[in-house]
Design a protein around this nucleic acid. Structure first.
Length: 465
RNA sequence: GGCCCCGUCGUCUAGCGGUUAGGAUCCAUGGUUUUCAUCCAUGUUACAGGAGUUCGAUUCUCCUCGGGGUCACCA
């Protein structure tokens, strides 16, 4: 069974890059009827916060990504790590190192000065004398000093590291006894049964160390997939400084979860030429072997397009519900179907949709001067008055087509083009020259409100002249 | 600097020795629309460079250049 995981450290909100690797892991587990588990890497007590964990969970909920089973918290697993540290110590695969921080720093400086790479020199590897006074030891693992370590990566292929280039006896437990990252990751992944690790390729160079731990403990090494970074416009790793990397910010901006997910799944992964993926399609088609090798630049143009697409394809009932977060309440509006059908074609975000709704249902408080000037030329006011009269006489006005017929009648009666009535009417109803079809606007507003807006515009523009 | 990864239109990508190098987005133009948007059509734009291998390289190898990642008692 395929078991994947997402293992964030709760130092802030869930960010776009993390979400993408989480999504990949989630999809791969679902595709294989496997498990996707969540582990919170909260061992850095200074930087972690409970709110951050909650923020991550909240984002998962918004996006509909469910993790399987209980959430694992590293902070509650000290006893487990201690047990394995002891085991390695007992087996002679790890040892106490009494080198002080100052000594270590000095060694590093010397090595740097000689243009050598900074590397622990193994001075306590086979130490059996009396330890120096006053130094709490760290625990180091005996890493291979030569030979090669190969990461069989599902994205990058086999990546070969020379032990002498990159390894030394690295610390697995600090002086205060707390275990270090590369040690606990390997243990947790092994114990949680994770056999397919999908993560950012910034972890690729950590992987040999983790392999050392797996091997020392006799655990099976999982399959790794190191997915390329998402870069910002400057070509650097996307970080929290880059703005709009908080997943929940997208909710506030009016993006739909399915749009964000679709956008992210196509960043660094593809399935031929297909652009639109429903969640079911993603689950059916995702395969990490199709992840590409190069980093991609974060650019939201396509996200806007996808979001517009998903808004168009969202049922009005659902849209009305979502719009409430943006201060628009349509649930009781009897013409909301007509209104949303017309407006959802025009919005890139829910925020924009909310604005568009307001532009229709709220009477204009002012008229765009340029629009007024252009629309209220010649006998525009007379035309509007005729139109208002015909509207007044009419009964049974319900559908946009009912209003359209009246416009047609006036156009015929006065022998004018459609624009002659359309433009002033548009300014009267909306205050500007763009917007949805007037018949739709009028059907939504109803006869009384339409007449009232026309009357006000006529009055205003008559005074101007 | 050492080690590792990467390099196809501005951006996201297809391609897996022979293609007029495809799609999407963006942009531009035209059509539809009383307007704007949608929608439809059309168009501009790419294999980083150089050596090989080969009858033939975007594709394989090497070098150069460029970009990125990582080098902790952080995760």
């Amino acid at each position: 069974m395929v078991v994947t995981r997402f293992a964030p450290s709760p130092t802030g909100y869930l960010h776009i890059g993390g979400l993408r690797t989480a999504l990949f892991s989630y999809l791969w587990a679902r595709k294989n009827n496997g498990k996707f588990v969540l582990r919170i890497e909260d061992t850095d007590k200074k930087r972690n916060s409970e709110e951050a964990t909650e923020a991550i969970l909240k984002a998962f909920e918004w996006l509909g990504l469910e993790a399987d089973g209980e959430i694992t918290y590293q902070s509650k697993r000290d006893a487990i790590y201690a047990k394995y540290i002891k085991q390695l110590l007992d087996e002679g695969k790890a040892y106490r190192c009494y080198m002080s921080k100052e000594e270590l720093d000095a060694l590093r400086e010397e090595q740097m000065a000689n243009k050598q790479r900074a590397k622990y020199d193994g001075r306590y590897r086979n130490f059996d004398g009396t330890p120096p006074e006053g130094v709490e030891p760290v625990i180091r693992i005996k890493a291979p000093l030569s030979g090669e370590i190969v990461v069989h990566d599902g994205v990058k292929g086999d990546v070969v590291f020379q032990a002498e280039d990159i390894l030394d006896d690295f610390v697995i437990a600090r002086a205060d006894g707390s275990p270090t990252y590369n040690f606990v990751v390997a243990i947790d992944d092994a114990l949680m049964g994770i056999n397919e690790v999908i993560r950012g390729d910034d972890h690729l160079s950590n992987t040999p160390k983790q392999i050392v731990v797996y091997e020392a403990l006799g655990f099976d090494i999982p399959k790794f997939y190191h997915v390329p970074m998402i870069h910002n416009q400057q070509g650097k790793k996307l970080s929290k400084r880059d703005g709009a990397t908080d997943v929940m910010a997208y909710k506030e901006m009016g993006y739909l979860p399915e749009a964000l997910l679709n956008f992210l799944v196509r960043l660094g992964w593809s399935h031929g030429d297909q652009e639109i993926f429903s969640m079911d399609e993603m689950k059916a088609l995702f395969d990490p072997k199709d992840i590409n090798k190069s980093a991609s630049i974060y650019n939201t143009e396509k996200l806007d397009w996808l979001n517009a697409h998903y808004i168009k394809n969202t049922p009005n009932e659902k849209l009305a519900e979502l719009l409430e977060d943006f201060g628009v309440v349509l649930s009781s509006h009897d013409k909301k179907e007509i209104l949303l059908d017309a407006l959802k074609e025009r919005a890139k975000t829910l925020k924009e949709l909310a604005d568009l709704v307001n532009e229709v249902i709220t009477a204009p408080t002012e008229y765009d001067p340029k629009a007024s000037k252009k629309a209220f030329k010649g006998n525009a006011i007379a035309i509007l008055e005729v139109f208002a009269n015909r509207l007044e006489e009419a009964t049974e006005l319900h559908l946009p087509s009912d209003y359209h017929h009246i416009m047609e009648k006036v156009v015929e009666e006065m022998e004018i083009g459609f624009g002659k009535i359309g433009q002033p009417l548009r300014v009267a109803l909306l205050g500007k020259l763009s917007g949805p079809g007037l018949d739709i606007v009028m059907a939504v507003l109803g006869k009384d409100e339409t007449l009232s807006r026309i009357a006000k515009a006529v009055l205003t523009h008559a005074v101007d002249d």
